[in-house]
């Protein structure tokens, strides 16, 4: 579990927008270990998708500026050219996208879309790739996979489409699977089925999964480790239990207290974090969360706090300057 598979160093992603340069990812260090599920948590615009798409260069373009390093298998994927990246995409690192209906080609049979993934990286006859596609569809829990393979995306249910998307992701048995909000578009019951499927596949294949989500319930259900993002930076990271049960950063605390709990006190209205996340081009000199933080004081505006081990366990890092003891400031979720 401890072998590092992919290491992100000082990753920055900036986009040219009419107002200037938008810092979507403002310097992220993160490592992914073989076979783990790492949850990347944050609100919309926190940079979690920009971060994960830049791992395989899917957000490259004339308006994107990507810096830093993504070390994988002895090479830097940020510096790699498109041709080299094409060999990594879909074979070593695959992505399961959020809205499967939009992410699947509406005019191609789903079996062919799975087979295409196989044939892009392996020289196998079409027939063999198709047979393998049917197997994969069965493996992700689609009943009657042979029939489903001949269907077009619109003929399948939302849950089935997401399973097809996962089958595409797994087609070449990648080392890393990036799951970008894979359950957001689904019903609650289907959500947990899909999550259990991901968990099972991770166990069976040893695939490391980067799970992007804003849903802490999802994190609690499947994640091994958690990284919380705010305004393009990781503000807290650690094991699932550390982050969910002993949050250190006021933002994480706020996120957790805004989740409804079955065993908590009945409240008329869930607490919310005041204000809205930073989405503009301009960023404060100090802590990006300070303007919304209930505990903010003058020192918070001085400089961006370091991501460091403070009060939690060995690998439990957070990015806050607040001096406190857990006894006095326990805003336990």
């Amino acid at each position: 579990m401890s072998e590092t598979l992919l290491e992100i160093r000082g990753l920055t992603v900036e986009f040219d927008v009419p107002a200037g340069r938008l810092p979507a990812v403002a310097g992220v260090d993160l490592s992914l270990r073989r076979g783990e599920i790492l949850a990347l948590v944050g609100e919309s615009g926190s940079g979690k998708s920009a971060l994960s798409m830049s791992l395989v260069g899917l957000n490259r373009g004339p308006r994107a500026h990507i810096g830093g390093e993504v070390l994988f298998g002895g090479r830097d994927l940020v510096a790699a050219d498109e041709k080299e990246l094409r060999g990594v995409r879909g074979r070593d690192i695959a992505v399961v996208f959020q809205d499967a209906l939009a992410a699947l080609n509406p005019t191609q049979r789903v079996g062919d879309q799975v087979a295409e993934m196989i044939r892009t990286h392996r020289k196998v006859p079409k027939r063999q790739a198709r047979e393998r596609a049917v197997e994969l569809l069965g493996e992700v829990g689609i009943g009657n996979p042979a029939q489903a393979a001949r269907a077009y995306p619109h003929q399948l249910s939302g849950g089935m489409r997401q399973r097809v998307m996962i089958a595409i992701g797994l087609a070449n048995d990648p080392a890393v699977l990036i799951a970008d909000e894979p359950t957001t578009a689904l019903d609650v019951t289907i959500q947990s089925q899909v999550l259990r499927l991901l968990k099972r596949l991770q166990a069976d294949h040893g695939t490391a999964i980067v799970l992007i989500t804003h849903d802490l319930g999802v994190v609690a259900e499947v994640a091994d480790r958690v990284a919380v993002m705010y305004a393009g930076r990781i503000i807290e990271s650690g094991t699932r239990d550390e982050v969910l049960f002993h949050p250190q950063h006021p933002y994480t605390m706020g996120l957790l207290s805004s989740v409804p709990r079955v065993d908590g006190p009945a409240v008329a209205r869930l607490p919310a974090i005041a204000g809205s996340p930073l989405t503009g081009v301009a960023r404060p000199k100090g802590c990006a969360f300070a303007p919304r933080c209930a505990f903010a004081h003058a020192a918070c505006g001085d400089a961006i706090p370091q991501l460091q081990q403070r009060y939690g366990g060995q690998a439990h890092l957070d990015r806050c300057v607040l001096e406190r003891s857990r006894e006095t400031l326990a805003v336990t979720p």
Binding site: V88, G90, A94, V95, L104
Partner: peptide, 8 residues
Amino acid sequence: RTARMKGL
């Protein structure tokens, strides 16, 4: 984007 992700 999915097609690009496949490495096509």
